[in-house]
């Protein structure tokens, strides 16, 4: 026992030098060589091998199409639905195959449905946005509509509805343009099978809801807000006056100015910026937002309007008309 007591400090000293394996936030040393080797093997094989889902043994196109309609809670005509999923590239590929085997089977592609669906979507989105943003000018509405009808937005919607695997195309994975076109074709197919009110609700629930949590002013770039504001105000006959209402850190890198816009000596809006000119421009933008009722704290857009809204574009303010 005496021996142990005598040598304990010595023992402790030797143990101190042995590194204790503690868990830390580091990437292990095997990770990099493993990933390099995997990459090398993939390259040797000639790129990543992609097996399309519809070449699997467990694949039933009919069941998939049935489930697709049920998923969206819509009654699709089954032939039209299949046609909506058939891309032009697939038809061309099939025709080539059939020529080789010397027989002829007619297949319909979705080009007509795409056109029909696109036309309906353009009209419906325009009417809907006019109804939910009553004070926003026509140019702004068109800007939002173009954003919603853009390829990236429609492709994203289409992908998240599960069209990716069902689409009949020549090549997989399918391109974004084919995804977007398929969505338009689906709207076209629904238009023919369930009528325009039902397809309007479909567009509302899947396309217009993409504006949830977005700032609608982002989709319309106003080049010169000050001129636009003065043009608007000149009609009413009231006097618009910008005033410098605050300045901080003048002649420094962190200068900040604040400009208030006064309409008949009452404050309309204020903006800030690193120079007086930018502050004035920002104030004009704020004022326009207030006039168009699209401020940052606006009431959320109504996504529950039923039926097809009536057109109000004749009564609406147009920038270009001035």
């Amino acid at each position: 026992m005496a021996f142990v007591r005598r040598f304990t400090p010595l023992l402790a000293k030797t143990f101190l030098n042995i590194p204790i394996n503690t868990q830390g936030r580091r990437i292990h040393r095997w990770v990099s060589p493993t990933l390099i080797e995997l990459k090398y093997r993939e390259k040797k094989q000639g790129g990543k091998v992609i097996n399309p889902r519809n070449t699997f043994l467990e694949w039933n196109l009919e069941a998939e199409l049935y489930a697709f309609g049920k998923r969206l809670n819509e009654e699709f005509d089954s032939d039209l639905l299949l046609q909506a999923f058939t891309d032009r590239s697939y038809v061309i590929k099939e025709e080539m195959k059939q020529k080789e085997m010397e027989f002829d089977l007619k297949m319909k592609d979705n080009r007509e449905l795409v056109k029909e669906g696109e036309k309906f979507m353009e009209e419906y989105i325009q009417l809907y946005l006019e109804a939910v943003l009553p004070k926003f000018p026509v140019e702004g509405i068109v800007g939002i509509k173009n954003h919603l009808m853009s390829e990236s937005v429609l492709a994203n919607i289409s992908l998240h509805l599960g069209t990716k695997d069902i689409i009949l195309a020549a090549e997989y994975p399918v391109e974004r343009q084919i995804l977007a076109n398929t969505f338009k074709a689906l709207v076209g197919a629904l238009l023919q099978s369930s009528g325009d009110e039902q397809s309007g609700h479909f567009v509302r629930d899947f396309v217009i809801t993409q504006l949830q949590g977005q700032d609608v002013n982002d989709y319309w770039h106003i080049e010169d807000p000050w001129t636009m504001l003065t043009d608007l105000m000149s009609k009413t006959g009231s006097e618009l006056e910008p005033r410098l209402i605050g300045e901080v850190g003048k002649n420094t890198l962190l200068a900040c100015y604040r400009v208030g816009l006064y309409l008949d000596k009452k404050m309309l809006s204020s903006g800030f910026g690193e120079t007086v000119a930018t502050a004035k421009e920002m104030a004009a933008r704020e004022a326009l937002k207030k006039i168009f009722a699209t401020e940052e704290n606006m009431y959320p857009i109504n996504f529950k309007l039923n039926g097809i809204p009536k057109s109000t574009s004749d009564l609406r303010y147009k920038i270009s008309a001035n």
């Binding site: 998923r71 509805l161 599960g162 809801t209 996504f303």
Partner: peptide
């Protein structure tokens, strides 16, 4: 929530099970 699910209508996110 994927694709603003539930803002418009609810879509069950499971598409197939093997």
């Amino acid at each position: 929530a994927p694709l603003q699910n539930g803002v418009g209508r609810y879509v069950c996110q499971l598409q197939r099970i093997v």
